[in-house]
Simulated assay, not measured.
Amino acid sequence: MTLTIREGGPDDAPLILGLLDGAVRWLVAEGRTGQWGTRAWSANPRAVAQVHRYATAGTPYIAESDGMPAATLTLTDAPGSYVEPAGEPERYIHLLAADPRFKGRGAGAALLAHAAEVTRRAGISLLRVDCYAGDDGKLVAYYERQGFVRTESFSQDGWPGQVLARRVR
């Protein structure tokens, strides 16, 4: 599989929502509803507004395989309101999601590597992300395999989260 990564923008919000919806369907099929529940992102006005906000304030990136969207993430200059800023310049990853048809094929890892390179080229050394830390911890372990280390844990309305950081030089 050959991946290309392109910079997106606010017009990509429907594509991002579609990838998030596909990820929810996959998680539900796997019995893993703790992360994002059972409702499609595109059916939740608050989630739709969040995607549009990040796609406008940040920079979405789309990994494509033969012109088909395989995965996405958005980089911003700060975390969401539920995480304290780092106290130094940073880039923050939001909304990493992959099309389940591309699961295990490296699209997410390629986007994370791209985000690290974009951060480094901007002269910023800190890249952070947060994720669901419940159930078996597989998502936290995934980020650790991508070079991130755990920093602080948090809980938002009973949802267990973990912030992870990666230094890029």
Rank of each mutant, 00 (worst) to 15 (best):
T2L: 10
L3Q: 09
I5V: 12
I5S: 09
I5E: 07
E7D: 12
G8H: 03
G8Q: 02
G9V: 01
P10M: 07
D12S: 04
P14W: 04
L15P: 08
I16W: 04
L17F: 03
L20S: 05
D21E: 00
R25P: 11
W26C: 03
L27S: 06
L27N: 09
L27W: 08
A29H: 11
E30L: 11
G31N: 03
G34S: 01
G34L: 01
G34C: 02
Q35M: 08
G37F: 03
T38G: 06
S42T: 08
N44S: 14
R46L: 15
R46M: 15
A47P: 09
A49P: 15
V51D: 00
R53L: 11
T56Y: 08
A57V: 12
A57K: 11
G58Q: 10
P60F: 02
Y61R: 02
I62W: 05
E64M: 00
M68Y: 15
P69Y: 04
A71W: 02
A71Q: 02
A71M: 01
T72G: 14
T72A: 13
L75F: 04
T76H: 13
T76V: 13
D77E: 14
D77C: 13
D77Q: 14
A78L: 15
A78N: 14
V83D: 13
V83R: 15
P85W: 00
A86I: 09
G87V: 00
G87S: 01
P89D: 05
E90A: 09
R91N: 06
R91K: 08
Y92H: 13
I93P: 07
H94G: 04
L95T: 09
L95Y: 10
L96R: 03
A97L: 00
A97W: 00
A97E: 00
A98K: 03
P100W: 03
F102I: 03
F102P: 06
K103G: 11
G104A: 05
G104E: 05
R105T: 04
A109K: 13
A110I: 02
L112P: 01
A115E: 03
A115G: 07
T119L: 07
R120P: 12
R120F: 14
R121L: 04
I124W: 12
R128E: 09
R128D: 10
D130R: 02
Y132P: 07
Y132V: 03
D135T: 06
K138D: 15
L139K: 06
V140C: 12
V140K: 10
V140S: 10
V140Y: 11
E144M: 11
G147Q: 03
G147H: 05
G147Y: 04
G147R: 05
F148H: 00
V149A: 13
R150L: 05
R150C: 08
T151C: 12
T151M: 11
S153W: 14
Q156T: 14
Q156L: 14
G158F: 12
W159Q: 04
P160T: 01
V163F: 10
L164V: 08
L164H: 08
R167A: 12
R169G: 15
